[in-house]
Design a protein around this nucleic acid. Structure first.
Lengths: 118, 118
DNA sequence: TGAAAATATGAATATATGTTCATATGTTAG
DNA sequence: CTAACATATGAACATATATTCATATTTTCA
């Protein structure tokens, strides 16, 4: 009994568990997936990404667009930056943010297919 | 000055803001997107979904597979059920869960493309 | 150089959420 | 019916995180 530990019930399908266990991606992969979705799980960040999908924007413009404080936007841009979803360039006093990943739209589209089917 | 409210700086590109504003999906759509990703943003739920991608499983089997308590798994299955990502069928004392969305794999794959490019 | 503008950031607060624990519910076998 | 098993669930707790507030940093312009 090496498989059962925290489960307090009798495993019914030990063969199934073993088969599935072998098919599971490695921990890192699963962790990275969850982390990626965590970045996308916030309303403000989704809005920022959709905005940048249309046009590069400076922090001030994004704040105005979403009617949120510059600080809140700046904090979220940092999260998106660290996740390498956006990049930035400085132009004078302004900092312009833009998308750093061409697949964001594809991820959104796939999720929308799920949403629209329900 | 109808655009600027919480933003304490002068909007530099009012035209850009207006253009992007018009291109933004409606609030519901954006909210649903964030909610969908929120469901996928947890390690345990990702693992459950990947497991079910391979085979239908009862709660006990999933608990054994992930080495987690039956209660923790059951709570997460409820979240996945409410999000219509999984469905279930009762067979005797066991409850078997299975995927309720063929697009999950596609969503995962798109996210993995993003991950693997960095 | 000094003031103003745009952005970044640390600390604090409030809220959301994942797991645990105890227990309830539902099902089958004896 | 009762005991045993599988699952579900409510409350509590701990942790994570989004926003706010105050302030620091960076850049431009007078």
């Amino acid at each position: 009994m090496d498989i059962i530990e925290k489960c307090d019930c009798t495993t019914i399908h030990e063969d199934t568990v073993k088969k599935v266990k072998n098919s599971m991606p490695d921990e890192d992969c699963l962790y990275n997936l969850a982390e990626t979705f965590k970045i996308l799980s916030d309303n403000t960040r989704i809005k920022i990404l959709y905005a940048l999908l249309n046009s590069d924007m400076c922090v001030c413009d994004i704040s105005a667009l979403l009617n949120m404080t510059q600080s809140a936007i700046s904090h979220q841009l940092r999260v998106l930056k660290q996740a390498r979803l956006v990049k930035y360039r400085r132009e004078g006093k302004s900092v312009y943010y833009s998308l750093d990943d061409e697949h964001i739209k594809s991820i959104f589209d796939q999720a929308l297919i799920h949403i629209n089917e329900k």
